[in-house]
């Protein structure tokens, strides 16, 4: 029977169920399985390794206390990632390091005119080495974005969260989310273009 198997050999749903009954060993198995991903998400939001480590640990502690709220509507990893993102957003808000712009005009002040065309960057995903280099370049470019822009890029592009869900997390309107995503992407594209041009020159 699967009950006799160690947690590392059990299905995720079984491990989650055991953790929900208070089994600490089951919860540790979940941390073992998703620890890297959660840290990666915290790092993409915070951009500082030590802070990301703290946020990841806090996210797991928070998740333990709220395990009863997980009903299996999404995968555990997705739910856990949402917990982490919201925790990071709370941390950023409390630190008052940025605030959400409520109007597209406000966003535009920091980003330049909407009319400016987005740089066009072509990639060939089949070229492994080039792709890895691009990955690092994108990572560096993300680091140069403001926290607000980075948050929406992470939530929308990498976590594939819908506008509505992002709006709920950010406590703002869907219109704000739409404009923020646009300017965040455009800024990222500008940074990427500059970085790629610099690389090609060197």
């Amino acid at each position: 029977m699967s009950v006799d198997l160690p947690f590392e050999d059990r299905e995720e749903t079984e491990v989650v169920s055991a953790a929900q009954t208070g089994d600490v060993d089951a919860f540790e198995e979940l941390v073992r399985r998703h620890g890297d991903k959660i840290f990666r998400r915290a790092l993409s939001m915070m951009r500082d390794e030590n802070t990301a480590l703290d946020m990841a640990q806090l996210a797991w502690i928070k998740a333990w206390n709220r395990l009863s709220q997980f009903h299996g509507d999404s995968s555990f990893a997705t739910w856990m990632t949402r917990v982490t993102i919201n925790l990071c957003l709370d941390h950023i808000r409390k630190a008052k390091r940025w605030k959400f712009a409520e109007s597209i005009e406000e966003m535009d002040e920091n980003s330049g005119g909407v009319e400016r065309k987005l740089p066009f960057v072509e990639i060939n995903p089949t070229e492994g080495l080039e792709r890895e280099e691009l990955k690092k370049t994108i990572d560096k470019a993300l680091a140069q974005l403001s926290e607000g822009h980075r948050a929406v890029i992470v939530m929308h592009t990498f976590e594939e969260m819908a506008y509505k869900e992002i709006a709920e997390s950010l406590d703002c309107s869907i219109g704000t989310v739409m404009s923020r995503i646009f300017y965040a992407r455009r800024n990222l594209a500008s940074i990427l273009k500059r970085m790629l041009e610099e690389d090609s020159q060197s």
């Binding site: 740089p119 995903p125 690092k136 990222l188």
Partner: peptide, 27 residues
């Protein structure tokens, strides 16, 4: 342009950062 940029981000994905400490320490 927007479509190409989306493809770039989603196609390439994120860097594969891993926990910088041992699991036992983290846990």
């Amino acid at each position: 342009s927007l479509k190409a940029e989306q493809s770039l981000l989603k196609g390439v994905g994120e860097s594969g950062h891993e926990l910088p400490v041992a699991h036992s320490y983290f846990w």
